[in-house]
């Protein structure tokens, strides 16, 4: 029984991790290519979720909702990039932090204005809202497996995109040498817009995927945003591989930490105290993980240059 529970928690961690990866991929690309810290990345997560909830409601189709989350967030990304983000590439990190902090306020309040203060619900269709039996007598949610599969698929797609395609080569060139890329005759403005919009779209998709498990509400993006930052810092900023490893590490550490740490402390304290101490430390575990990584590798696990 304990074993099945452990596997289930591990899968939860994996699901959490793949979702974090979708969030982090855009963040790390945007930082790596354009040198931009984007706090408003969580807003695209929220926008995607709201877009999905709205279109699923109108069309009655969950899958149209999911697809539109991607498209809606992408459009929001394009518009934001053209109107604001562009002006920030040459500014220092402090300005970027402030300006994108301001964008959070604008997006969050804008959404609250349009949709009101109550959360929306995005319902998982019944054929997915079921459990499947896996080997070793493990029973697990179909929908969560879908999230894991989607995440891994997109990770694979991004890996191919960044390492095997022309766009990827241009992105890499941009990362290494921003002067060179314009010499190559690449329209750098368009490239930046594409990268930013792609990141926003992925964030939107993950917002919709998670919105269906939790609820769709204003402010849902920020906790995930902070986690995504932890992920890319651990993985090394700019590295897709780092984001993937970091996301899984964070996802599994957090989930298993909440599950195992109280058990661990039961060896030393009585039950109530063990639960208390265990869950308190578990809630901090990923930040502790990040601090440890940074202390030993100040530019992350796969980071090449210090930023």
């Amino acid at each position: 029984m304990e074993f099945q529970l452990l596997i289930e928690q591990l899968l939860n961690g994996l699901q959490f991790g793949t979702m974090l990866f979708l969030m982090s991929a855009g963040l790390t690309l945007v930082f790596g290519v354009m040198g931009l810290i984007n706090l408003a990345h969580g807003s695209f997560y929220m926008i995607g979720a709201f877009g999905a909830a709205l279109l699923a409601e109108i069309t009655g189709s969950f899958f149209i909702g999911l697809m539109s989350s991607f498209i809606v967030a992408m459009f929001a990304g394009v518009i934001t990039e053209i109107l604001v983000i562009r002006k920030l590439y040459k500014k220092d990190h402090l300005d970027q932090v402030l300006a994108t902090f301001a964008l959070i306020l604008i997006f969050s309040e804008g959404i609250r204005w349009i949709f009101g203060a109550y959360p929306l619900y995005l319902n998982i269709p019944s054929e997915l809202n079921a459990s499947v039996s896996l080997p070793l007598e493990i029973i697990y949610s179909k929908y969560r497996l879908l999230i894991i599969a989607t995440g891994i698929l997109i990770a694979f797609f991004l890996y191919i995109l960044t390492s095997k395609t022309l766009l990827g080569i241009r992105i890499k060139a941009g990362q290494n040498d921003r002067e060179m890329i314009s010499v190559l005759g690449v329209n750098i403005k368009t490239l930046y817009t594409i990268v930013f919009a792609l990141g926003a779209a992925l964030a939107g998709l993950s917002g919709a995927l998670i919105g269906a498990i939790q609820s769709v509400e204003v402010g849902m993006g920020e906790p995930v945003l902070i986690l995504a930052f932890v992920v890319i810092i651990i993985g090394g900023i700019g590295s897709i591989k780092g984001a993937f490893v970091g996301a899984l590490l964070v996802g599994v550490t957090d989930t298993l930490g909440r599950f195992l740490l109280p058990e661990l402390f039961k060896l030393f304290f009585d039950n109530a105290d063990a639960n208390l101490i265990g869950s308190s430390i578990a809630s901090m575990s990923i930040y502790i993980l990040m601090a440890i990584v940074l202390i030993f590798k100040p530019s992350g696990l796969f980071g090449e240059r210090s930023a």
Partner: peptide
């Protein structure tokens, strides 16, 4: 611990400690 890093890593590690 934070001052071992610079730039965006410093921004984020200070954030992480506060989040803890």
């Amino acid at each position: 611990f934070s001052l071992r890093t610079t730039g965006v890593y410093f921004i984020m590690i200070t954030l992480a400690f506060a989040q803890m």
